Amino acid sequence: MASQGTKRSYEQMETDGERQNATEIRASVGKMIDGIGRFYIQMCTELKLSDYEGRLIQNSLTIERMVLSAFDERRNKYLEEHPSAGKDPKKTGGPIYKRVDRKWMRELVLYDKEEIRRIWRQANNGDDATAGLTHMMIWHSNLNDTTYQRTRALVRTGMDPRMCSLMQGSTLPRRSGAAGAAVKGVGTMVMELIRMIKRGINDRNFWRGENGRKTRSAYERMCNILKGKFQTAAQRAMMDQVRESRNPGNAEIEDLIFLARSALILRGSVAHKSCLPACVYGPAVASGYDFEKEGYSLVGIDPFKLLQNSQVYSLIRPNENPAHKSQLVWMACNSAAFEDLRVLSFIRGTKVSPRGKLSTRGVQIASNENMDAMESSTLELRSRYWAIRTRSGGNTNQQRASAGQISVQPAFSVQRNLPFDKPTIMAAFTGNTEGRTSDMRAEIIRMMEGAKPEEMSFQGRGVFELSDERAANPIVPSFDMSNEGSYFFGDNAEEYDN
């Protein structure tokens, strides 16, 4: 993207840094990872977990959730003011799984939030270390993106479920800051804005008074975040219109849905970061690795190297396929839920299948599930090659597409044709070009129609051997075009429920 120079890199967003050079960025990201790792080690000690239990991804998720809940100030305040039966607002906890007599047992633990905050700050040299908290939120978000298709949420806001490739980060909490905003897809931002506008339509006082002023500035800020994701002048001009509207209503909703559809071809720039579970960072720190000293990046080879040398386990339900569970977590670790499966298959070195073909449910185990038949197995999170994460949407291309997802959002900077089903997408653009945004709409449609099938995206960008740390010898991959490109292809993934 041309304006790259004016933006802070995501590592800076990730670490609240002012302008830093590459070495400083690597050190501050490393410091953040160190903090998460030290916190995780301490929690495993508190909970008396064995090494194996500490490497269980379900335990990692519970521990991450506990610290996120302990620092969720708004919710904590709300819980104190609106006490609900049987919930102690000062405590947080969740299921911890232990191996007892050759069987997995679930144990519900409860801790004072104050105590968890103390352990977290102690692991982070006394700081609140917001960057580390956001990092864990993005890992949870990436896992949700890989596990669930947001059909219901899309339909509720009037969008087409086939636009799911635009929904990265749709389950990120509001408090995820600049680093969170960077990884949100165009569809996620559109959905947040539509929800806001709908509230304004239904509630006369939404934009009024002292609160209304705050609401208005939040609305304009979200519009600017979305505008910054678009790469064409016409899309940005249309966002200006939406932002400046005196009284946002149905016309703005129409414009936003139009823009979301246009992003299936004229893709937005959305950041991709490899955020790993805390149970990967903990053992690495415990083994003596100093992330701050060595430096770390979320968008280069580092996460690949770390996963190459990590042992992570997962509980497996009786009829689940461990290899499929591994694929789910591998995609989440690489922030690749909406990437082209052919690119992923090449990088991973084994075939990556669409969601609907995987015999696996989510990673988390519900409290009512029976533990008797639970097994555990090693997650295979290694890769054959590594590639640089991208934040450009890439230019655009036609490809055989599917009944489910009709476009992709690249996660890796790797040369390819970008699949999208042009006739299906263009069919949504018939007729409606009147109104105050008509010239911009016409211009956007013209650009979409001009998108050429034979153009290559990320020209000359390749993948790298894991021994090639400096990215000196790019390998331009070859793809098996007979395979499906979309992950949520004609899909039956479970729906995400809060």
Rank of each mutant, 00 (worst) to 15 (best):
T147L: 03
G404T: 11
S9W: 04
W386C: 08
I96N: 03
I116Y: 01
V476D: 00
Y219V: 04
V190T: 14
L61N: 10
R361G: 08
V312G: 01
Y289M: 12
S314E: 07
M189T: 09
L166A: 03
L315C: 12
F338Q: 15
A493W: 09
S314C: 15
S377L: 12
G158Q: 10
R162S: 04
E53P: 05
R389C: 01
L256H: 07
T157G: 01
Q409S: 13
V155I: 14
Q4F: 15
Y52F: 11
F206G: 03
A263T: 15
D145W: 09
R382T: 00
M167F: 02
A401S: 10
D290Y: 09
A260V: 15
D290P: 14
S50Y: 01
M167N: 07
E18L: 13
M191H: 09
M448S: 05
Y40S: 03
A131G: 04
K452C: 04
R400S: 09
E454N: 00
M331G: 04
M238D: 03
G295E: 12
E380C: 09
N202G: 06
T130D: 01
S69C: 11
R355N: 12
V352T: 07
G460L: 12
V67S: 11
E320G: 10
A278I: 13
D112G: 10
T151K: 12
E11Q: 10
F258L: 13
R348F: 02
G126D: 03
A131P: 15
E484I: 13
R75L: 02
R441V: 02
E53I: 08
E495V: 14
S50F: 09
L341Y: 10
L276S: 12
R243W: 02
M189Y: 11
E369F: 01
G404M: 12
E469H: 07
S392P: 03
M189S: 08
N321F: 05
P89W: 14
R389V: 01
P322D: 11
N144Y: 06
V67M: 14
R195K: 11
L56W: 02
K214N: 11
D203R: 01
Q409H: 13
N334D: 08
R55W: 02
E339V: 09
K305E: 06
L266N: 03
G132M: 09
V242S: 08
E495N: 14
K227Y: 08
S287G: 10
R317I: 08
R75D: 09
S486P: 07
G300E: 10
Y281T: 10
P83T: 10
A427C: 15
Q364L: 12
R156Q: 12
L108E: 07
T437Q: 03
S407M: 13
G282K: 07
I41W: 10
E80A: 08
E254K: 13
T437H: 07
I138S: 06
R436P: 05
I475S: 03
G462K: 03
T360H: 08
R121I: 10
A123S: 15
P89Y: 13
K87S: 06
E465K: 05
N202P: 01
A284H: 11
E454D: 04
A428G: 04
F346T: 07
I253C: 05
I194T: 11
K7I: 03
G35M: 05
L56E: 06
R26C: 01
N334K: 02
